[in-house]
Design a protein around this nucleic acid. Structure first.
Lengths: 264, 264
DNA sequence: CGTTTTATTGAATGACGTCAATCACTGTGG
DNA sequence: CCACAGTGATTGACGTCATTCAATAAAACG
């Protein structure tokens, strides 16, 4: 992990480098995607609605978003969270109809990447394309883990697992400071993520807080004892695939003086 | 849908043609994948284990398989079902470590497709590649729907939803006869899919059966009243994307005498 | 400053889990 | 042909985790 003295890194780049080390050209390509035309949303606005024909790949620049789905009778399930540096729907062009919504959780800025720019950049930089694949496969693995969360874990475990995951994802994007990270998710939304009632989320989170494991104050999550929190929900971080699995593809031409140490 | 008098169609092809109409060359490519070296597994054997480096794309030829994951204390969650014609992990080459298992539910035959053959076939037939993308995005959409199932639906709804989905998927692969299809899933596994206890699955399914909605006998599922079953669990089949969304890519050179009627 | 959203609390209810026992069915080997 | 073990389905009794329905308080919002 780069020292904190650097200028604030782009979360998109920071995250991709957990997979493989990018060359200068790869980084330029990634920055080009990152710098595409911006689009802003207010909290609670939808980026994409069910039934629509999606026209852009989107990259979250600032703020949080979520995927969600309604049942006909109004029950809502949140399917995934998108934090800065996350990309929505690499393959969005294949399906003609969205089967779910994507909505802004907070005020949100995204980069709107047209198919042409996306193809141009990724054709020119295959290593970057690989890294983007990796990113989308990790998103898939996170979905699988949420399935385990809903199917097998108790309310207490579901909530602590969710919070550990969010913290680790934010940290992987370079967006944590020490044991804390931004966390703009209300208890109502935790309920829609975990399939619990808001009442039960409130009660359960109180006990987590009273045990001193973690707390949320002013939209900031602080995990006081990460190890204890992780063992309380049997957290196994393997599914986040943060172990530089693409290191055999690493670039060597990035011109940095002195190689960065490899995580073992 | 082709008339039943045809010789039994390949479920892989049948399913792909729900997306776009393939040319003769596309079909040859698909058949080449289908005919790659076979590998057989006994029921309960694992195809791939957690932590392994996956080396093949696999295509289910006969029998059922499932993805699953364990918690450290032994709780098990089934993450997805694979039926004949389903492909596992188009992008398996990107991640170096599986984060879950894939196991045979029944005696199972798969086609083992090497990276070289896969790349060769899909590079030559871009329309086939599109269709395979579609197939893997549908798998993703099914996972999302399972999340809704676990998060929002009652035991009764979870079970009926699962059974409706299995029936519709089998029908889309040409593997249903009338209101029935093969269904080799035990109640124990339904419990691991739906996150319920076996006892509760047994009790709940009894009421479904008593209402005459559906039954399972000798590993065959029969849905007596599909409409009633679907409305009982608020089933919205949109996520299966069976509406020929890729029809703008349809091939026109398939040499059949007389065009097949287009679903509206 | 009113209005909406969010968090909290209590009490009552209900859905689902656990434990334990039984039964049917299958395949196995003696 | 039978004893035996293993798996899967079912049943009853009981316990508990989580929901529902209030009502209230505290923030956030415009």
């Amino acid at each position: 992990m780069p020292p904190a003295s650097h200028p604030p890194l782009n979360p998109f780049l920071t995250k991709l480098e957990h997979y493989t080390r990018l060359s200068a050209e790869d980084r330029d390509g990634a920055l080009r995607l990152w710098s595409e035309r911006r689009q802003a949303f207010r909290a609670r606005d939808d980026l994409v609605r069910e039934g629509e024909d999606p026209r852009f790949v989107r990259l979250v620049v600032e703020g949080w978003a979520c995927r969600y789905k309604y049942l006909e009778d109004g029950r809502r399930q949140v399917l995934g969270l998108l934090v800065p540096g996350d990309i929505c729907d690499l393959n969005v062009f294949v399906l003609r109809e969205m089967d779910h919504f994507i909505g802004a959780v907070t005020p949100l800025t995204v980069a709107q990447i047209s198919r042409e720019v996306f193809d141009e950049v990724t054709l020119a930089q295959p290593r970057l394309m690989q890294a983007l694949w990796w990113e989308s496969l990790v998103a898939l693995a996170i979905q699988r883990e949420w399935l385990v969360n809903l199917g097998q874990r108790s309310a207490y475990e579901r909530i602590t697992h969710l919070l550990c995951e969010c913290y680790l994802r934010m940290r992987a994007a370079g967006l944590a400071r020490g044991p804390s990270c931004e966390f703009p998710i209300t208890q109502t939304m935790i309920a829609d993520i975990t399939g619990l009632s808001t009442v039960h989320v409130s009660r359960t989170f109180q006990t987590v807080r009273d045990e001193g494991l973690m707390e949320i104050r002013d939209r900031v999550l602080t995990i006081h004892d990460l190890e204890a929190a992780m063992s309380a929900c049997l957290y196994n971080p393997g599914y986040l695939h943060l172990g530089r699995e693409g290191r055999h593809l690493d670039a060597n031409d990035d011109g940095e003086p002195g190689a960065r140490p490899r995580p073992s």
